[in-house]
């Protein structure tokens, strides 16, 4: 049971009486606080702590015949669900997934059979509803065995649509799923909202690299200057932002390859901005150094987007990494050596 006194949240609209006590009634409208919270989570601010208390909630005025929707306790997930439930009377059972979304939590098993069974018992759901059907998001299926839940609780698990936006239609159609509701899509907007966290993740290693270059400058193995700075930042943007955004249109299948390709174009562009094909403002050794360092930098960052994508398999990523990781290391190391040698003979 969600302790209403302790958990008085702005998105709780009221409370309703049930045979097992009071249940919080949630609003189906997102307000500025929710939108700001989503934005912050996307940028990695307070992302690991953006949770709602696990437990039973009500939407509208549900009764013993109302459908039960099961979800994760990541607030972004909870918001995505409740905002689609206007004019509906339903129960929401929030599992304790440690603030992780349904798909990732299912992969870990926290959105799983055991947690579901425990939560069913804790919330005494069997006394709240008279039917025995639980609607789970389809993407929770990697963590839950429907037949085990049935065996241990008597509740029948049905897997609803992938997207919360289809739930109303799904319920109104008598829990019938269309093929469209079942398919995972990964459109440009879906990819776009996932890029900020990639950029945030790249900031810390980047600061370490800047620190290192600063030290090298001060001990005389420089100078690393403005060209190095924008060349590097460009490669990071190519790997973390541009490659994810243009993913379906970049030739090839491996993410590292896609990142490499765009990174290579960027490296050529950097050299072109500095004089190619005519006289360069820096030595040819340095220009080759850029060609060796920038593309694999973008490739590495692009490879990390496999985790955010919705279609990469573990076997595929392992295969990609077996080739990409050694190639990336060799290329970056030789490029760095070239640039350092160039700096040493140049100074």
């Amino acid at each position: 049971m969600v302790d209403l006194e302790k958990n008085r949240k702005y998105w709780i609209a009221g409370e309703i009486e049930t045979p097992v006590g009071k249940v919080a009634q949630v609003s189906t409208r997102l307000v500025s606080g929710d939108l700001l919270g989503s934005w912050k989570a996307r940028w990695g601010i307070n992302r690991m702590n953006y949770t709602v208390s696990p437990g039973l909630y009500a939407v509208g005025t549900p009764d013993q015949n109302s459908p039960v929707l099961v979800t994760a306790n990541y607030k972004l997930t909870f918001d995505a669900l409740r905002k689609e439930l206007s004019d509906l009377a339903a129960w929401i059972l929030v599992l304790d997934t440690k603030g992780i979304n349904v798909w990732c939590a299912a992969g870990k098993g926290t959105f799983g059979t055991e947690e579901l069974l425990v939560r069913l018992g804790k919330e005494k759901l069997a006394q709240v509803v008279s039917h025995r059907t639980l609607i789970l998001p389809q993407l929770g299926a990697p963590g839950v065995s429907a037949h085990m839940v049935m065996q241990y609780s008597g509740f029948r698990v049905v897997y609803g649509p992938v997207r919360a936006g289809d739930i109303k239609e799904y319920i109104q159609a008598g829990l019938q799923k269309t093929p469209k509701m079942r398919a995972v899509i990964f459109n440009t907007y879906d990819r776009l909202v996932l890029t900020p966290i990639e950029l945030v993740a790249a900031v810390r290693p980047s600061l370490m690299i800047f620190g290192l270059l600063f030290i090298l400058n001060s001990v005389g193995i420089g100078p690393f200057g403005i060209v190095d700075l924008y060349a590097y930042i460009g490669a990071v943007l190519v790997g973390c932002f541009l490659t994810p955004l243009l993913l379906p249109w970049i030739p090839g299948r491996a993410f590292a390859w896609k990142g490499y390709l765009l990174g290579f174009i960027w490296a050529v562009l950097v050299n072109t901005l500095n004089g190619w094909p005519g006289e360069l403002t820096y030595s040819w050794l340095r220009s080759i150094g850029y060609l060796l360092v920038l593309p694999p930098t973008a490739a590495f960052l692009a490879m990390n987007f496999t985790g955010a994508s919705t279609y990469t398999s573990l076997s595929g990523v392992l295969k990609e990494m077996r080739i990409a990781v050694p190639a990336i290391v060799v290329s970056i190391v030789s490029g760095v050596v070239l640039i350092l040698v160039n700096n040493l003979i140049g100074s």
């Binding site: 992969g107 299926a141 065995s145 990390n304 496999t306 985790g307 994508s309 990469t312 990523v317």
Partner: peptide
């Protein structure tokens, strides 16, 4: 197939096998 394992986990008859895991380079 992205090897999520949902099919295997929900098959009551053990008819499906897959080495499931996260297709995520950073995680690996």
């Amino acid at each position: 197939c992205m090897e999520c394992g949902a099919c295997a986990k929900n098959c009551a008859f053990g008819a499906i096998g897959v080495r499931s895991g996260v297709g995520c380079a950073a995680a690996i």
